[in-house]
Every structure is written in C-alpha cells, then in structure tokens.
C-alpha cells in the first residue's frame, strides 16, 4: 500500500511538474513574441491605409482579393516568387514530403489538399511511422556496440576508470561530438547555401528538425531558382535520417548512464510494484533479499553469488 501510494504520488508529481513546465514556457513565449506581433499589425495597417490612398481601390474589393491570395498561398502558389518554374509535387519534393511525414517532422510547407491525398496520408503514415521507428531502433542497436560499449570497455582497461566514471566521460565526449557534427557543421553548411538564413536560423532549423518538432518556418530547398534542387532535397533527407539515428543513440547512451547511476529506478514506478510482488514467492533466497536493502553489505554476498553464477555457466 505504501509503495502504491508512493508510485501514485510520484506520477502525480511528475505530471504536475510537466504542466508547470508548459505554463512557464507559455509565459516566456508570450512575453517575447507578443510585442513583435503588435508592431507588425501596426505596420500592416499603415501600409494598407497608404495603399488605399494611392489607388482608388475599394476596401471590400481589396479584402476579397487578399482572401483569394491567401487561399492560393495555401496551394503553394506564391506572389513573392516567380513560382511558375517550380512545382511542389515533383518526385524529389514528394520524397522529401514523405520522409518528413514518416519521421513525424512535418514541416507543412506542402500539404495534400485533395481528399485522396489526405486519406492516403493517414494510411501511409499509420504504417510508415512505426516502420521508421523500427528501422531507427535497429540502426541504433548496431551503433551501440562500436560507439558506446567498446569505448567504455577501452576506458576501463586503459585508464583504469570505474564504470561510472568511464560512462560519464564517454557520454560527455559523445554529446560534444554530436553537437559539433550534427548541429554546428550542418548549420554552417545551411547558412552558406540558404542566403536568407543566419547561423542562428540554421542552428534553430537543425534543432527543430532533429527533435521532430518541425515548425516549418524554415524549410530548406524552397528558394526560387535553387540549383541542384533535387540533389539538395535528397541530401537534406539523408541528413535528417542520420541525425535522427544519432539523436536516438545519444538518448540510449544517456539511458545507460542513468541505469548505472540508478536514476531510472526513480522513474520506473511499476518496477517497485514488481519488486514487492516478486519478494513473496522467494522463500529460499531470503538472505539475498536483504542484500539490496543494505548497499554496503551487498558487496560481500555478491562475490560468491556471482562466482556461483559464473561457475554454473561454465558447467
């Protein structure tokens, strides 16, 4: 009963902390972005008034026209650019769209507008999203050996570090390399190719993409007259896939690190209940139940038990 109450309290506390996090973020975004919005509204109002004075256009006719502009904008037809040369649904663009859909990035720069496209999107993503997660998991499983287990073992043998220290050092080095190779270097590349992006914009795009948020305010290969556009789109697609793989790798490495330090035991609420249930049928192993309760005493009885386990494996 006390364990059940404790797990309920932990879950409720976790949910409350989560909602508090949402509220704080909402406050900060509202404080930062609201003045910009109001100033843009004022600019547009003055611009509209100036435009109406210059010409004899009726206000109602102008608003009707602008509504049609926005509807055309949703189709991807834009007045900002000379869009007659470019199509949103050629093979490279469709491949890029399909990739962003199944990875749940979802920029929204192009969206299906026909009913058949929408229905197909539902079926396609329903199978494609778990399929992609399965492929990413398989890749991460293979990368764990050369990138996580082997370096930690090498640290333990050469530097003589314990597993905890080796895990911490390895995680810090891995995090630094990932930030350098998958955020800073691609940001430099994107800011060089995309003329209107600054370094912060490119870094912001890399972060939004690799976390699969995909707000869609910055989308690569959307500039008019982009040279080698198909190749550029496919390269971004490959970058997204490899980047997601590496993000999962970092997440799993962090999970291993948390396992070593015992942090995950704090969050794994069902495991407490499991422990309580499993202790009841274990009558023969009574003394071994005492060992996890006392951490200091756990060293001595574990040596013979592990040796026994090892000897039994030999036999």
């Amino acid at each position: 009963m006390s364990t059940a109450f404790r797990s309920c309290f932990m879950l409720i506390g976790f949910i409350l902390a989560y909602f508090t996090y949402l509220l704080l973020g909402a406050l900060v975004f509202s404080a930062i972005e609201r003045p910009i919005e109001e100033s843009l509204k004022a600019d547009l109002s003055s611009l509209k008034a100036e435009f109406l004075n210059l010409s004899c256009v009726n206000s109602t006719a102008l608003e009707t026209f602008l509504e049609r502009v926005l509807k055309a904008n949703k189709y991807g037809v834009s007045v900002l650019e000379n869009a007659s040369l470019r199509t949103n649904w050629d093979l490279a663009s469709s491949l890029f769209f399909a990739n962003t859909m199944v990875t749940t990035v979802g920029y929204g720069h192009t969206t299906p507008l026909s009913d058949a496209g929408k229905a197909f999107s539902i079926v396609y993503a329903l199978i494609g999203v778990p399929f992609t997660m399965l492929v990413l998991t398989a890749c991460v499983q293979r990368l764990m050996h050369p990138l996580t287990y082997r370096p930690i073992s090498a640290c333990q043998r050469r530097a003589g570090l314990q597993q905890r220290s080796a895990s911490v050092v390895h995680f810090i080095v891995l995090l630094f390399l990932v930030v350098l190779c998958f955020f800073v270097v691609p940001s430099l590349v994107f800011s060089a190719i995309e003329e209107t992006w600054s370094f912060l914009d490119a870094f912001y795009f890399c972060f939004i993409s690799l976390c699969t948020i995909g707000l869609g305010d910055f989308v690569p290969a959307e500039k008019p007259g982009q040279s080698l556009r198909a190749l550029y789109k496919i390269s971004v697609m490959v970058y997204l896939f490899v980047g997601l793989m590496v993000m999962f790798l970092v997440l799993r490495t962090f999970h291993k690190l948390a396992d070593v330090y015992g942090w995950t035991a704090f969050f794994h609420l069902p495991s407490c209940e499991e422990d309580e249930e499993d202790k009841e049928p274990i009558i023969e192993a009574g003394p071994e139940d005492d060992s996890p309760e006392a951490e200091k005493a756990s060293i001595k009885p574990l040596d013979p038990s592990s040796q026994v386990s090892y000897n039994s494996i030999n036999r």
Partner: peptide, 22 residues
Amino acid sequence: LYLLCGAAVFSALEHPKEKLAK
C-alpha cells in the same frame, strides 16, 4: 522502397491540382 512508393503516389495525386491552382 516504401518512401519511393509514397513519393510516387503523392506526386500523382497532388500534381494536377497544383497546376489547376496555378
């Protein structure tokens, strides 16, 4: 293969409507 098939289907479905909108 799944991505290529999806790209082909989306291109076939949406391209005509895009031309019409333009």
